[in-house]
Each structure stands twice: as C-alpha cells, then as structure tokens.
C-alpha cells in the first residue's frame, strides 16, 4: 500500500515535470541568451548521465566492472562499430569482469 502512494505521486509529478517546458515555452521564442546554453544541453546531460551510470552507486563513487565494460564500449564507438555491437560488448565485458573478480 505504501508503494502505491509512491507510484501515484511519482506519476503525477513526472507528468507535470515533463509538461513544464512544452506547455510554458511552446509558443514563444526563447531569449537569445538562453539559446547558446540550451544547444549544449544534450551532450552535457549525456556526459553527466554516463558518468553517474558508470561510477555512481548511490552516494558513492566506485570503479567496478562497469568501468571496464564502458571503456570497451568507448573503443567500439571510436572504431564506429554498430550500436548493437557496442552494447553487447559492454555487457559481455562487464559480466566477464564481474565473474573474474
């Protein structure tokens, strides 16, 4: 029952958060000073997400098997491997490292 309260609150808040930009800013041009920063938002958020997903464990910084898997993924990306290959490699290397360590 407690979890249902979480689910309902999260549903309402996520929908509201997602709609903030599209409802408040859809009809107007963003001011010039905001356009430079917003153009950089995708690479910047992706950089943060990849770091947190690779080295984060709650509030701790850890270097574990994921780091090896993501490093292997970076090598695949640099050599222009297809995305599926990149991801299968990342999972395989991570699983292997975890099994070895």
């Amino acid at each position: 029952m407690r979890f249902w309260v979480v689910v309902a609150s999260m549903a309402v808040s996520s929908m509201a958060i997602r709609a903030t930009g599209p409802l408040l800013f859809a009809r107007r041009e963003l001011p010039g000073w905001a356009q430079g920063p917003l153009a950089l938002l995708t690479p910047v958020v992706l950089a943060g997400l990849s770091m947190v997903a690779t080295f984060g464990a709650g509030r701790h910084l850890v270097v574990d098997a994921r780091a090896a898997g993501v490093a292997a993924a970076v090598v695949c990306v640099v050599f222009r491997a297809p995305l599926l290959v990149v991801m299968v490699t990342a999972a395989a290397v991570t699983g292997l490292m975890r099994w070895l360590l």
Binding site: P43, S50, A53, R66, G69, M87
Partner: peptide, 22 residues
C-alpha cells in the same frame, strides 16, 4: 541481473550517443 553485466548497457548507450555530439 548485474551478473550478466546488464547494468553497463545504459552507460554504454549514453556514451555511444554522446560521442558523435562532441
């Protein structure tokens, strides 16, 4: 599920989408 390295899929996907945007 981490035994199969599945927790590396998400950061790998993020990195793969990020690199061409650098």
């Amino acid at each position: 599920p981490r035994r199969f390295g599945l927790d590396a899929l998400f950061p790998a996907l993020f990195v793969a989408i990020l690199v061409p945007q650098l």
